[in-house]
């Protein structure tokens, strides 16, 4: 299973590194990553393969939420299928 991690918020130093560190901590493999800064708003999307993560899914998702609160940005973890079904026929 793959998840899409989306990060939106004010650009600060080290966002990608901190998000990647959480991925590594749970053994989630980063498959793809794309980012952009639009009018001072930092937008980053990361596709991760979580088939071999070492914790229950909700812990993984909650840790990103906590990181988002700490960094003052919005971090969401969603199943890849949400985007596939909504944007592809």
């Amino acid at each position: 299973m793959k998840t899409v991690i989306s990060v939106i918020g004010k650009d600060t130093v080290g966002i990608i590194s901190k998000v990647s560190a959480v991925c590594a901590k749970y053994n989630a493999n980063i498959v793809d990553i794309t980012q952009s800064v639009l009018q001072d708003v930092f937008v980053m999307v990361m596709l991760t393969d979580i088939s071999s993560i070492n914790c229950p899914y909700h812990e993984y998702a909650e840790d990103f939420k906590a990181l988002g609160n700490e960094l003052g940005v919005d971090i969401r973890v969603m199943h890849e299928d949400v985007f596939n079904s909504m944007h592809r026929i």
Partner: peptide, 11 residues
């Protein structure tokens, strides 16, 4: 890879 615009639209 999924399109950044599509992902942001859904979020």
């Amino acid at each position: 890879m999924l399109n950044l615009h599509d992902i942001m639209e859904t979020v």
